[in-house]
């Protein structure tokens, strides 16, 4: 539940006059309700205590997707249309997950399950560090309602 809320709180719509945190939390919860049992059903016999939770790794990407959709809708004077926003957001997120899910299946079938291990170690380090920093900045946004970059710009300009 906490992970759903955290996922939802990181996704912001700067041009919308009302918050979508509740709907986004439900979107994250829907992932747990539908995808979570797949993990328990498929692997629960062999891996104890799986407890699937909304993956916060996706938060920076979803935040960017939401901001892009919000920006385009704002340009067309539709920033407050929740139906259009959620239809585009879930369709795009679904497409991304469909693509990565299929790639996971293909990677497993062609004996490339250890794909991550094929990348240079230093690249993996940089990649995960960047995601870690992005996660922290999202935590900052949840608390303050501002982006770290905006705050830094204000400080620099003063």
């Amino acid at each position: 539940m906490v992970f759903c809320l955290t996922q939802a709180a990181t996704v912001t719509r700067p041009h919308s006059t009302h918050s979508s945190t509740g709907l986004l939390a439900r979107t994250a919860a829907l992932g747990i309700l539908t995808a979570g049992p797949v993990f328990v059903f498929e692997l629960g016999d062999q891996i104890p205590a799986i407890y699937p939770a909304s993956d916060l790794f996706l938060a920076p990407f979803l935040a960017k997707v939401a901001a892009t959709i919000d920006e385009v809708l704002h340009q067309h004077g539709l920033a407050d249309d929740d139906r259009l926003f959620f239809a585009a957001f879930t369709a795009v997120t679904g497409f991304g997950l469909l693509l990565s899910g299929l790639m996971c299946v293909v990677a497993a079938r062609v004996k490339l399950a250890n794909l991550g291990a094929l990348l240079p170690y230093s690249v993996l380090c940089g990649f995960f560090t960047a995601i870690g920093i992005l996660m922290w900045t999202l935590g900052f946004s949840v608390d303050t309602g501002h982006k770290v970059g905006d705050v830094v710009l204000v400080v620099v300009s003063t």
Binding site: Q7, T27, A28, A29, L30, G31, I32, L33, T34, A35, G36, V38, F39, E42, L43, Q46, I47, A49, I50, Y51, P52, A53, S54, D55, F57, L58, L62, T90, T93, G94, F95, G96, L97, L98, S100, G101, L102, C104, V105, A107, A108, R109, K111, A113, N114
Partner: peptide
């Protein structure tokens, strides 16, 4: 049979496909 490929396909792969069709966000196990 619990190989890396099995976990990736049956755990992560299938769960993402389900989440995508249902309209949710992907999950990761603890």
């Amino acid at each position: 049979f619990l190989t890396l490929g099995y976990i990736l396909e049956h755990g992560y792969g299938y769960s993402q496909l389900i989440a995508a069709i249902a309209g949710g966000i992907a999950v990761a196990p603890s």
